[in-house]
Design a protein around this nucleic acid. Structure first.
Lengths: 341, 341
DNA sequence: TTGTAAGCGTTATCAG
DNA sequence: CTGATAACGCTTACAA
């Protein structure tokens, strides 16, 4: 049994005794079309079960109405809220999203970019993989004037807008908070320092120490951690093995902070009295761990909305002014893991 | 500045002095083509920076090499592992995934299905929204012989394969475990009972009670909970307000179980001694909450792989036998939240 | 093994 | 405001 043939604008044209061109216009919001013929066309289309053929349309118009999204991983609360925000804005504006995960790998990111290119996305939104080393793979798109927006893990590139929070300030806020709780030796569990987010958070940490006149001690920084559960456990084990243990931890994400806390608790360390802990992201687990984790609220949904809105704007009005960087507001949320009062 | 024109197979053909048809064949793995001409074509294509135009290709061949995925929400560990599994298999087989969230809404699910239809997906994988009431919206696809696979939250439909775990057995296992720990009054926090997963888990719960000769008490079932954090909190509040409190809880997901535990702990209830708790899904938070949550392991990654493999198989060999249901293995993971030994 | 030529369904241009 | 016509870039009978 073969499926019945698709209805095309020719079929509608024949029925209504107009030309296919008119049908095409009626289906869109073409300015030069009489209201009643448009209505007739729309009615007939509905009645006949017409579905537009996007391939033909895209082929002809050279637009896909599709926006690509490349992210390291989907499995964090932060990322899923970002995606939800993007979907909302994109769909409202008539764009579809296609999502690809780089799995934190530079190589896979390159593949993803090429897939997006092949799919002829109208624009791209990217948060970089853990070990992305350069931006050459984006050039194919940029050469064709396909706009790219970076968000969260960004890289400075002329002509591309970045959406971020002030990670330096956030790192500063987190560290100052710990210092004000009386911490003198604060460990910083950082990620790959070639990623802006982790480098900046560390930078903010250093600024806070300087402000409080505490000398920076590089043995208190764990860099290039994957900030995974394992990363948190490793950090805890390192701490437990230290002669002179830290009295505070600022971890660059909640996953690592929580895993670290669990491990420390298992060894009988009291949080926050012996070691106070601050995480980053305001992931739901931060409210599950006992004691609840102090963290930095990261506005994921808003970041998704802003990124998509910025891109759609660029797409719809080519003359839109190209901002370099948009900074969203973050917020320190103090909970029991660091509160010694 | 206008971007340079795209390279087409005509350009390559001209350069190599062959016909466009030959180029087209060379680019694919057409059987009737000389090895060396194929190599020449491939080389030229690479050198000239050729990118195939998928729109034209899809328009002509009436295939999109795209698989649609519709899920309630992206923001759970379970769903992100499912998606990862699907992506892996799909990409290996040369398919792209386009993902859409119904946000647990029947209405949005209908919109998503239509979007997928418009995008001319070759096949669809669906986990139903919370309040999906019928399957009429899928008929457009089925009428065109576009295969649909249901997973997790499924519905019986002739011709469609479902991928599930044995939720009845899992509910039975969870409840029996609680009973063996000495629980006599077990509360069941269930979801919408028109969704197979929740109805079946409740059914298993009832079977276990029957097996142990304990009469079913409908006041101990909270149905139509959203199984969200709020749902867990609500359940806890209900319990606290009860004269004759339950001594065990079987919640149909970990989110609700964890939120419920937190609330109960705040009121000084000891877990597991006063109330033992079992969740469902083996979400990472189950290992963060104190005491660690007993739960049912749900093989998300595998479910994604199997769903995609089944669909790809159907797509690639139209004659593939159509299985009705594939059942994956689950597992009870006993942790401290229910362990009274 | 390769070439020819006819579409796939739409939209843009130009003319009326 | 509408119609005729020519692409868009590719695949695929069919012919050579």
């Amino acid at each position: 049994m073969t499926p019945p043939k698709d209805i095309t604008i020719y079929d509608i044209a024949k029925v209504l005794n107009v030309s296919p061109a008119t049908v095409s216009r009626g289906l869109k919001d073409h300015p030069a079309i009489r209201k009643d013929t448009k209505k007739r066309i729309l009615d007939a289309a509905r009645k006949m079960g017409y579905q537009q053929n996007t391939f033909a349309s895209n082929l002809r118009s050279k637009r896909s109405n599709t926006i690509g999204v490349i992210i390291p991983r989907l499995n964090s609360y932060f990322m899923s809220t970002v995606i939800a925000g993007m979907e909302k804005v994109a769909n409202q504006s008539g764009y579809n999203l296609i999502i690809s995960q780089s799995q934190e790998s530079f190589k896979k990111e390159i593949v993803s970019v090429n897939t997006m290119y092949d799919s002829r996305v109208d624009g791209l939104m990217v948060s970089l993989a853990y070990d992305t080393a350069d931006t050459d793979h984006f050039e194919v798109l940029l050469k064709k004037n396909i706009p790219i927006i970076f968000f969260d893990r960004v890289i400075d590139h002329p002509g591309c807008t970045s959406i971020v929070i002030d990670n330096k300030q956030a790192g500063y806020d987190a560290t100052v908070h710990l210092l004000k709780q009386g911490c003198k030796r604060i460990m910083q569990v950082a990620g790959n320092l070639s990623r802006n987010v982790y480098a900046d958070r560390l930078e903010g940490y250093k600024m806070a120490l300087a402000k409080f006149g505490i000398p920076f001690d590089s043995t208190l920084v764990i860099s290039n951690s994957l900030l995974s559960e394992q990363g948190g456990v490793d950090a805890a084990q390192l701490i437990l093995s230290m002669e002179h243990r830290p009295d505070g931890i600022f971890a660059s994400n909640d996953t690592a902070a929580v895993a670290c806390m669990r491990q420390l608790k298992l060894s009988g360390i009291h949080i926050p009295n012996e070691i106070a802990v601050v995480g980053f992201n305001n992931d739901p687990i931060s409210k599950v761990i006992d004691p609840n984790l102090t963290t930095i609220n990261y506005p994921g949904h808003e970041m998704g909305e802003v990124a998509a809105a910025t891109l759609v704007n660029k797409l719809d009005q080519k003359n839109a002014p190209s901002l370099n960087t948009i900074v969203l507001r973050h917020e320190l949320i103090v909970r029991e893991s660091s509160n010694r009062n």
